[in-house]
């Protein structure tokens, strides 16, 4: 029994080990890799997808999936660009609200009308992307040069640390705490592990679901604001393919796609692994950047196979 317990708590040991291997390899292979500047760079590059992946982790923990994240980043990013010149407060708050609202709609459709998450969020993905094209007339919306404070969100530094990285870490910490130490967090795990039982234990299953998809939307809103600030423009094509990246990071991080097991700590390392791969390809210089996709795919497969094997081992031991 003790051994079993240990296996279970190893959930994110795998991803941490993979991270370390990759980190050491990169340090040995590429001179410039292990420098404060480069590492901060990697962190900044992954911070936005990382924030989206935090929300995705909640969603996958309840056995769901959110395909709309990339599109939600785009809509909220565009909305942020509209207000960037007028009011910084609105340029931050409105996109956050919009993201959370659209996420809540996902949740309501999934919980109330019992539509499978794949379909519901797929529809949202198409709809939100369409909306961002219409709102911008397919052009990008520039953030005025005068919005100095606003542009700090994506481009600023606090000492040596880029602001997006600080926001990422803050959100990561909050999410970790919520999942681990609050009643709501535990309900997320319960729901993902056995929905019917959760219902019978008196958990308001629909509420939890709607909250989780709202959180995912909220994270997209945050990522959208940062991205717009960083690019200096709200682009309707922003966030293309982020859903894949976020799902990959979550799965590589050890959160089971079958729900109930995992957490944001693993996702953090999953995101870092993806970021390091991109970075290594850049440093290498001659490799085509499409290699990134191939490597991500392979890693994802490995992660999923390892998960399945562990699941099997635990079942047969018990």
């Amino acid at each position: 029994m003790k051994v079993l317990n240990r296996i279970n708590s190893m959930e994110d040991k795998g991803v941490i080990a993979a991270f370390l291997v990759l980190f050491i390899t990169a340090t040995v292979m590429f001179e410039p890799f292990f420098s404060l500047l480069n590492i901060m760079n990697i962190l900044r590059q992954v911070s936005m997808i990382g924030i989206v992946a935090i929300g995705m982790t909640f969603v996958i923990l309840i056995k769901g999936i959110d395909l709309s994240v990339g599109a939600l980043v785009a809509v909220s990013g565009v909305l942020s660009a509209y207000f960037a010149g007028r009011s910084m407060v609105l340029a931050i708050l409105l996109p956050l609200l919009l993201g959370a609202l659209l996420g809540a709609i996902n949740g309501i459709i999934i919980a109330r009308y019992r539509i499978v998450p794949f379909i519901a969020t797929f529809a949202m993905m198409i709809g939100a992307r369409g909306a961002s094209y219409i709102a911008t007339d397919t052009k990008s919306i520039a953030v005025p040069m005068t919005a100095k404070a606003y542009s700090k969100i994506g481009r600023g530094y606090a000492g040596l640390v880029p602001v997006p990285v600080i926001i990422f870490f803050l959100l990561l910490f909050i999410a970790y705490y919520i999942l681990k130490n609050t009643s709501f967090g535990r309900k997320v795990y319960a729901l993902g592990s056995n929905e019917e039982a959760s219902l019978m234990m008196g958990i308001k299953v629909n509420r939890v679901k709607i909250a989780v998809y709202s959180i995912s939307g909220l994270m997209c809103g945050a990522a959208g604001v940062i991205l717009t600030s960083r690019l200096g423009a709200g682009q309707p094509v922003a966030g293309m393919g982020w859903e894949i990246q976020a799902i990959a990071a979550t799965a590589i991080g050890g959160t089971l796609l079958s729900g109930g097991v995992g957490g944001v700590k693993g996702t953090f390392f999953g995101v870092l692994i993806l970021g390091m791969i991109t970075n290594m390809i850049n440093l290498q210089g001659s490799l085509n950047s499409w290699w990134q996709g191939i490597i991500t795919g392979v890693l994802l497969l490995i992660a999923i196979i390892v998960q399945a094997q562990e699941g099997r081992r635990i079942v047969s031991l018990s």
């Binding site: 009643s183 535990r186 056995n194 959760s198 234990m201 958990i203």
Partner: peptide, 28 residues
């Protein structure tokens, strides 16, 4: 039996009515 397989024994007993401190932190 309707219990949650991936949660601990203790959590299964307290799920939904965990004792909490002032900040909403579960008192493990």
């Amino acid at each position: 039996l309707n219990l949650i397989p991936d949660l601990s024994i203790a959590e299964n007993i307290f799920l939904g009515r965990e004792p909490k401190d002032r900040f909403g932190k579960i008192q493990w």
